[in-house]
């Protein structure tokens, strides 16, 4: 494997966004790119990352290799990379270590780290292609703000999507709160758009602890997309350049 990123920033942010959700995971490398799928310890949330080969310049991977990595250790190594550094990830066949090289833009500094790999026997879940009943795109910063505000009211949020908009409702001991985002297009700045497509109305409840955790990915993308269908896990997607993505799945809460 040899994969070179123009700026370490992307990889630093991706790892930062998932390291509190999953501790040990395989980065599955093959000729289409670097992928990762891992569930949190409670098996309630799942992260699915794809960094496509086109994200790297260049990208070369001659055979499928899983790089089993402790994300806490990786975070320590990535601290040594400045956001603007060129990052190269390298690995041999059947590796014991992954090699990370950080180069300053002006090429006067080269840092090189070897990170020990671990054997991780990871369960992969099959995520079916789903036609979601409702898809809502909104500014990622707005979603983060809504989740963190409502977490102060309640542990759970009900998300309701209709043609008019998407409503987040929390009911707690101190009272209730709700935030509605109405569909709208900002002609000046499409990053501010709220776009809803719907085949049927959806109402589901989710843990805000997990949703606020997903929002650690906010810096990766201006917009976030929520995909919902009744009685299936929510998908929260941060789309990245070159068809790369960071997706989170969260199982719903069901009333008893």
């Amino acid at each position: 494997l040899e994969a070179r990123l123009e700026a370490a920033d992307l990889f630093k942010k991706v790892v930062e966004a998932i390291k509190d959700l999953v501790q040990h995971c395989n980065f599955d490398c093959n000729d289409s790119g670097i992928a990762l799928q891992a569930m949190d310890n409670s098996h309630v949330a799942l992260v699915s990352m794809m960094l496509t080969a086109d994200t790297f310049t260049p990208f070369r991977c001659d055979r499928n290799i899983p790089l089993g990595i402790d994300l806490t250790s990786l975070t320590k190594v990535l601290r040594a990379a400045q956001s603007s550094d060129i990052l190269t990830i390298k690995s041999e066949d059947a590796p014991d270590v992954v090699n990370l090289v950080f180069e300053g833009k002006d090429q006067d500094r080269i840092s090189e780290y070897d990170l020990k790999l671990m054997d991780i026997d990871q369960e992969h879940l099959g995520i079916p292609d789903t036609e979601y009943a409702a898809t809502a795109s909104m500014p990622a910063a707005d979603f983060k703000r809504i989740c963190s505000d409502l977490l102060l009211i309640s542990e759970a949020v009900s998300i309701e999507c209709t043609k008019e908009g998407i409503t987040f409702k929390a009911e707690g001991d101190i009272g209730n709160g709700s935030v509605t985002l109405r569909q709208h297009s900002d002609l000046e700045n499409s990053d501010k758009n709220v776009d809803i497509s719907l085949t049927e109305p959806v109402a589901l409840s989710f843990s805000l602890k997990y949703l606020t955790g997903f929002c650690k990915a906010t810096g990766l993308s201006n917009q976030v997309r929520l995909c919902l269908s009744n009685d299936v896990p929510l998908m929260v997607e941060y789309a990245l350049a070159n068809n790369s993505y960071l997706r989170f799945y969260l199982a719903p809460k069901i009333g008893d």
Binding site: H43, V44, L125, G126, P128, A156, Y249, K253
Partner: peptide
């Protein structure tokens, strides 16, 4: 009261 589902209810191991 609400009960938290697990993902394995929806997604099966590959």
């Amino acid at each position: 009261h609400q009960y938290q589902e697990q993902l394995s209810t929806f997604f099966k191991p590959k």
